[in-house]
Write a protein that binds this DNA or RNA. Structure first.
Lengths: 334, 334
DNA sequence: TTGTAAGCGTTATCAA
DNA sequence: TTGATAACGCTTACAA
């Protein structure tokens, strides 16, 4: 339908060989007479010749593509993460292909395979539903470097990370120093490694205060606004003075559930989130939370991955980014 | 680094020819003994063989790819739109490549070119910064079908749309029948064709009430939460009893600005949005808005495009989807 | 029931 | 200065 003009047509029209055309068009044509060069270039324009992408890649073995798998595009954390990826990719002349696995394992497998098929030069996988060892097996076998993120087993491969343990501690310290003792924890239904760390960090500080977070004070639900909303009855039953939601999306769901039931935030119950999505600054009251540098994480992940692609023998890369406590208005001193 | 597993490796391992492997893996292997078939399939899994995309496309001449250009991934409307695209693509065995043009014309041109290079079979362009005629020229010359969305000139090519004029009317009717007369309008800084329609529809109803929306009652800013927030001083200066924000993102920014200044919604000023993003249901008070079926729009756009790809001679396609007034709590009767 | 061999459009090697 | 020719990994007539 498109591109009927091949390099052969062009060569013929110019009365030279395909080698000549190829070399000239790829900037390796200094050795040819300027006459020939001019002729080829001119005819390329005239015939509208565009090298066939597939044929080219077949031999070049580089698609300048990285694949990206996220669990949910609609989560602001991931849209920021993706924007970071796009930015860094662009700077390095790579193209990111993005898939939303929709928290669905089957879909994720399908996309993973699709990305391998399309000869992505590297992958960023920010999705927890696949087993890290499975990923490693299939990708390593295909010689594709990758970077796991938010994963069950982040030890494999390069790594960009934040200290979730410390993040959990920061949250706990803030709540406890504000005087809260009756704390409930709201987490997702998939406890990934990094989130487990958050929980552990949180618990460690509680322990220092000789408080314990028993299992019945830990509520699980989907890691979305709706999940947070649906967890509200469970949370209320615990009569907490403060709730730590494991991400901002859930926290915002909790807002709605509490407010619908007439609870005031933070007068009746304090809320603390995690992520610092753009929205956290736009809800009422503004959400106190732990800032994760999502955009920067996307950038750095991409940069590490591209370095790895360009130099596979590189030593293990590991980059940590800082977390930050963002105090807003959703936690009250008691 | 491990070498990529080729069809030859697999054939060798199975003790058969590459033809056999190729046929079996492409579902044309009935003629081979079930023993052979089983062996090949099993070894494929074991070796993790994935056909080379470039080599395959080189022969098959179809990338099964559609390109997608959106102005801003972080806007929930577009994340939903994309989810619809992904869903429909998946059903039709296509893969969407998604780019966030970030409201940046240069970036958009770059991505457009990239998509052509990569031989995308079709494009969905939901981004207003390119001139529709430019797009048409470039894409038509390359024989790539496309579908414009949210564009300046939606007449070209296939079309999936909602009746924005009517949407504007619905919003106005609701505000006016709630008794509001001092209305301010908040719009984006790029007035695309569809948004102009919204405004026109809104104005037409005002006119019926013998009210006019003078230009100084129309405030412009970026179509983001932050843009809405930044517009608040301008809005307040107009002392409106109600504000119609041209999208929900902006409405939510207005919420914050008003609430920070001590205004109560809807007691002191009513707000009406447009889009019905997931968030609209989670802010306080819940946002009254016009529902656009973003997910479905993505689905339908994709289906139309794929039909067009598979049958280029098809007559002009045009599909309209319904809007709906969603009454929540941000507009008060006066 | 299976295999041989000819391409697809490109770039890279090496000889002329 | 140039050009044959051999890959690249795959699908598909056509043979066997």
């Amino acid at each position: 339908m498109t591109q009927k003009v091949t390099i052969r047509d062009l060569a013929e029209a110019a009365g030279v060989s395909v080698t000549t055309v190829s070399q000239i068009l790829n900037g390796k044509g200094e050795r040819f007479s300027s006459d020939t060069q001019a002729r080829v270039l001119k005819l390329q324009k005239k015939l509208g010749y565009v090298p066939d992408y597939n044929a080219r890649n077949l031999i070049m073995r580089s698609t300048q593509t990285i694949g990206v798998l996220v669990p949910n595009l609609a989560n602001s954390f991931f849209s920021m993460f993706i924007k970071g990826i796009q930015q860094a990719s662009q700077n390095n002349k790579f193209i990111p292909i993005i898939f939303d696995a929709n928290h669905n394992q089957e879909l994720q497998n399908m996309y993973l395979e699709e990305l391998i098929k399309r000869a992505a030069n590297g992958l960023i996988i920010a999705s927890a539903t696949l087993d890290a060892n499975d990923i490693d097996r299939i990708l390593t076998r295909n010689g594709i470097p990758y970077l796991l993120f938010d994963q069950n087993d982040a030890q494999i491969g390069d790594r960009v990370w934040v200290d979730d343990y410390k993040g959990g501690q920061m949250a706990a310290n803030y709540l406890l120093s504000a005087g809260h003792r009756d704390i409930a924890l709201l987490v997702g239904d998939e406890i990934t490694q990094n989130i487990q760390q958050r929980i552990n960090g949180f618990r460690s500080v509680m322990a220092k205060y000789h408080l314990s977070l028993t299992d019945e004070r830990v509520i699980q639900n989907k890691m979305t606004k709706l999940g947070g909303y649906q967890a509200v009855d469970d949370l209320i039953a615990l009569k907490p003075s403060a709730i730590f939601a494991i991400n901002d999306e859930m926290a915002i769901g909790v807002y709605r559930g509490l407010q619908e039931r007439g609870y005031r935030i933070p007068e009746d119950v304090s809320i603390m989130g995690y992520d610092d999505i753009d929205l956290a600054d736009f809800v009422m009251p503004k959400l106190t939370t732990i800032h994760q540098p999502a955009f920067e994480m996307g950038q750095v992940a991409t940069e590490l991955l591209i370095e790895r692609i360009q130099n596979p023998r590189l030593a293990h890369q590991d980059k940590q980014l800082p977390l930050e406590l963002i105090v807003r208005d959703s936690v009250k001193n008691v």
